[in-house]
């Protein structure tokens, strides 16, 4: 998968919940993430400088997000601060409608996306599973779309696979499943549905064994991508024997 001329692996990881630096190193080794997301927060002496330094040492590409922004203006400012702080014009654009559902506010999202594309950003928007909105985002110049499988941190997997297939069919930019993945089979399913990558945060960082889950996710996205390319058999109403019916013993 390629975005803005950069080749990226299909497993993307969030850093939220990763505090132990040794775990970070082992998660990166086990998951081999194409990139990792970071948020932008007010500076304090008790910040996470060491986490970022560790990720930089490991050569992990960082994708800043606008997590928690409730409006277009706030998201645009956060993206501009991220560009300044991290020296990247890539941004995972999140504009949520409220702090309970954490669902995208698509009106504000479209406004922010347009503004950021105009300002030269490579915009990767977190969006709903609505193919019409996805098409609008691409029309505005977004480099990818990131539909949610189910609400952020819920671990409920892909609530309606048809929405992800519809988004896939609607756009010709990379589709990255974002939010809701709880375990490896759901990451594989996202790839089978035609996604180019899967972003997993909570499912890895808050698993009982984040390192093992990172490896499971890496294998799952690889398996799902291979299965997608291999072309699955059509679903049938009735059974179809895989062994010959003729020549059975005693018949």
């Amino acid at each position: 998968m390629e975005i803005a001329g950069q080749k990226l692996g299909p497993l993307w990881l969030g850093t939220g919940g990763l505090t132990n630096l040794e775990t970070v190193q082992r998660v990166v080794a086990a998951g081999a993430p194409g990139l990792m997301t970071v948020s932008l927060r007010r500076f304090s002496d008790t910040g996470n400088d060491s986490l970022l330094a560790t990720l930089a040492e490991l050569g992990v590409r960082l994708l800043p997000n606008t997590a928690g922004c409730l409006g277009a203006r706030e998201a645009v400012l956060t993206a501009e601060l991220a560009r300044e702080a991290l020296g990247t014009d890539w941004v995972k654009l999140e504009v949520i409608g409220d702090e309970q559902s954490l669902l995208p506010d698509v009106v504000e999202l479209l406004e922010a996306a347009e503004s950021l594309v105009d300002r030269g950003f490579t915009v990767l928007p977190y969006t709903t599973g609505d193919p019409v909105v996805a098409r609008r985002l691409v029309d505005l110049g977004c480099a990818a779309v990131m539909p949610l499988g189910s609400p952020i941190g819920s671990g409920r997997g892909i609530a309606d696979p048809h929405t992800i297939e519809a988004v896939r069919a609607a756009v010709d930019v990379p589709v990255v499943l974002d939010a809701g993945i709880g375990t490896a089979s759901e990451a594989a399913q996202a790839m089978e549905l035609g996604c180019d990558a899967v972003l997993v945060a909570t499912a890895v960082t808050r698993a009982e064994d984040p390192v093992a889950m990172a490896r499971a996710m890496r294998l799952a996205v690889e398996a799902g991508g291979l299965a997608r390319g291999a072309g699955r058999i059509p679903r049938r109403e009735s059974a179809r024997a895989s062994s010959p019916m003729r020549g059975r013993v005693g018949r």
Binding site: G14, T37, S39, L40, R41, F43, G47, P64, L81, A85
Partner: peptide, 10 residues
Amino acid sequence: VEVVTAHQGG
């Protein structure tokens, strides 16, 4: 004034 830096998240 807002002084910010990257932080774990997402």
